[in-house]
Design a protein around this nucleic acid. Sequence first.
DNA 1: TCAGTAATTGTAATGGTTTTCATTTCATTC
DNA 2: GAATGAAATGAAAACCATTACAATTACTGA
Lengths: 333, 333
Amino acid sequence: MKTITITDVANHAKVSKSTVSQYLNKRYEYMSEKTRKKIEETIEELNYQPNIIARSLKQKSTFTVGVVVANILHTFSTQVIRAIENYFYEQGFHIIVCNADDNPEKEKNYIEMLRAKQVDGIIIFPTGDNLDLYQRMKSDQFPIVFMDRTIQELNIATVMLDNHLASKLAIDRFIEKGLEHIAIITTSIIRDISPRIERIQGYKDSLASHGIPFNSEYIKTVNADEIPLALSEFFELEKPPQAILAGNDIVLNEVLRYMKQHEINIPDDIAVIGIDDVPYASFYTPTITTVNQPAIEMANLAAELLLSQINKTGNEDTSVHRLKPTLLSRNSC
Amino acid sequence: MKTITITDVANHAKVSKSTVSQYLNKRYEYMSEKTRKKIEETIEELNYQPNIIARSLKQKSTFTVGVVVANILHTFSTQVIRAIENYFYEQGFHIIVCNADDNPEKEKNYIEMLRAKQVDGIIIFPTGDNLDLYQRMKSDQFPIVFMDRTIQELNIATVMLDNHLASKLAIDRFIEKGLEHIAIITTSIIRDISPRIERIQGYKDSLASHGIPFNSEYIKTVNADEIPLALSEFFELEKPPQAILAGNDIVLNEVLRYMKQHEINIPDDIAVIGIDDVPYASFYTPTITTVNQPAIEMANLAAELLLSQINKTGNEDTSVHRLKPTLLSRNSC
DNA sequence: TCAGTAATTGTAATGGTTTTCATTTCATTC
DNA sequence: GAATGAAATGAAAACCATTACAATTACTGA
């Protein structure tokens, strides 16, 4: 099956390629009514589809953006992907989804391929280990937006959660309930990822602001599969925690699984709050109090920032946008 | 910032474009060791990235495939996307993710754009309303694989669940537990989507095979937001069902939410089985018995089928592959 | 030294579109 | 019937890489 090109259309319609091209780009003022009709019919007849690759080569724009998430297993990532996809669909863009798997090598590979494919911009959840690469995109003025995580020194537009507040909301709630021995578990032990650090810092600060002494035994940063172990260690402490803040949805799942397995009652034996909402939070027994990230809002903002860089509208915004989490108050605390 | 082209590299390295191109395509036998080194250094120095768009134009292959899911809100869709992404990453392909939102217009739009963008193939969860379009891809010999849903008359390679068996597994389990008044709720009321039909058929057949009379009041196909109403109707029946089969993860969520709200005890007051596993199934109270789709296996198979069409290896496989679900036996029934 | 071969490099066409600008057409007017 | 100007159309270069093949150079052995 031979592919139909603009030349075929031109020949059939007995006009020049340029006229057909004008038609394709809806610049009808350059042609007579008759020609327009003729071209229209020919395109219909030949079932012609313009080759966007060729167009992109010429126009240096692919109407495609890349989304590189650090880890697609997080509910938050999939929510964000979904919302970004939706936003860009409306703008006539496609998105290429990439999962870096928390692996900087993979991330690098993806970014380079995306640039080679001439995507118009990238939204990235940075692993944090490719500074030179981020730097280069920045200095090339390549449209880029960071999501979820910031890299201070880089001055790249970023959309992230106010993680400090996220912890604070949870801690305040625990304390309101009279609980003072509060533990926190997070994942992502590999690098100094900003959300983890900020959540722990928020945890510390909030405790301090309530005059509660800080106990390093109450802080765990472990891989998902080591969470049961970490929890066991909590319960073996002389003074086990009365409350646990789960740093993300995966941690929360593991915490709930552990409590179920060991028949530990929530909230009576231990109170639990999770950062990131989960679909079952509102009908679990007990319903789970969570600190919710406004994922859709964040995704829309990131998409908007990227689009404005692509279109070079507005002065360049390189600020770090921190969106506020909300406490969804339920019964696990 | 001027972009660097192969010409720039050639000039700097004082060789011809073709030699650089040979280098890029790793045909080192066409050049001396010295030349190879020289080019390598120059590329490094200029930070040159080949323009894949230009290459694609020439080679008619973009190393990109499209994935059009009918509805990205289903856990199953995201699991499949994740696995497909992973599979193709290994093959050096990128995937463009599209969410048709159960809307055939949107689906059509996506498919046409993907083809215009010259993707090498498409995996699609068909909405079912674009027969002519599917037909055309087929007759153009464009690589395409259907997922989750089949369209009988089209003869297109398909990977889907053995939905009949999925229902049977659940019904058999209910009956084993001595429950005979069994209801089923599914979504997707718009079109005659094959999974829904097959699941309902499997439900009917299984009941029949156990000699249980079939009661049409026990079958509901409704939108997600109407599920509570549908459940209420069940409970207002003279003989309310003793068991409910939830047709997918979204239905299951709504069923559990309803039971929680109305303080109906699972499994004592009503038994529940869900098709599609959910992350919380194993630690919910009670743990939830589910019929699990082998999502990763299905995704891998679909990807493999597509890739073999793209590479034209193997005789064309246009069969419908039905993978077996498994019953994850837990305590909700 | 020279024919002949091997090693390496250069040239030019190709892919399908966009876009500039030159050229043609045609109705209008004097 | 020719000049004018606007409208319509067309030719050609550009985008950037690939690739077949032509051209050049280096080197061998007689």
